[in-house]
Simulated assay, not measured.
Amino acid sequence: MTGRRGGRRLVPAYLSTNGTARPSRPQLERLSLLTTSGTPVPPGLPAAQLALLDALREGSLTVVEAAALLELPVSAVRVLAGDLLDQDLVLARAPVPVAERFDPDLLKRVADGLRALKQH
């Protein structure tokens, strides 16, 4: 799945997903965390799915990180991950929600307290 020096891929991304355009799991987001499940890999798995599983052997990756590592579009990795989820070969965790806005007054009081401790 590597490209040529001119930047054009040897294999179009849609071929890595067997022509599938949409993931079977629409809840997979760009920041969903992917991890291998430890289930034995069945024979005959497509090369792109094997490449994703291989990338996840090093540890958990977000969909975006896996896409960058495999040099595939995020949409293609979402399809591949969805197929692997359907086969129980990968686990996915939703992205951590954005924290509530911080209280600027609380931060100011903490900074003031730290400054006071530093002066003593």
Rank of each mutant, 00 (worst) to 15 (best):
F102C: 13
V77S: 03
D88N: 11
Q27D: 15
A55R: 07
S75M: 14
V98G: 00
A47F: 13
A68D: 10
L69D: 07
R22Q: 15
L10K: 10
G38Y: 05
E58P: 15
K108D: 15
R22I: 11
R57G: 08
G3K: 15
L10C: 07
M1D: 04
P104E: 04
L28C: 04
H120L: 11
S60F: 12
R8F: 15
L45K: 00
P42W: 08
S60E: 12
S60L: 00
A47E: 10
Q87W: 08
P104A: 05
G82D: 05
V41G: 00
Q27N: 10
K118V: 13
A47C: 11
L117M: 06
Q87H: 07
S16F: 13
V79H: 01
R5W: 08
T39I: 13
L10W: 13
T35E: 11
R30Y: 11
P26D: 04
V90E: 06
A55G: 10
L114D: 08
D54A: 15
G113E: 07
A67I: 05
D103M: 00
R78W: 00
P43G: 12
A66D: 00
L72C: 10
Q119A: 09
S24G: 13
R25V: 06
P46A: 08
D86K: 05
V64H: 08
S75G: 11
A51N: 12
P97L: 00
A92L: 02
L106T: 15
R9K: 11
D112N: 12
L53R: 11
A68N: 09
T62R: 06
R25Y: 10
L91A: 04
S37F: 05
P97Q: 04
R4P: 05
L84R: 03
L28A: 04
Q87N: 11
R9Q: 03
L61C: 03
L84G: 01
T17D: 01
A48M: 02
V74I: 13
L52K: 08
L15A: 11
V41T: 08
D105Y: 03
R25K: 06
S37M: 01
L72E: 12
R109Q: 10
R22W: 15
Q119L: 06
G38M: 01
S24M: 06
Q119C: 06
S24E: 13
F102K: 15
V11T: 14
K108A: 07
L85N: 12
V96S: 01
L61V: 06
A94I: 01
A21M: 12
T20F: 09
K118C: 03
D83E: 06
Q27S: 09
G7I: 01
L69P: 09
L56M: 02
V98R: 05
L114P: 00
V63Y: 06
L31P: 01
P104F: 07
A76H: 01
L89H: 06
R109A: 03
L56R: 05
A68F: 10
A92D: 05
D88K: 15
V63N: 11
R93V: 09
L117H: 05
P23V: 00
L15R: 12
K118T: 04
R30D: 07
T62D: 00
V77F: 02
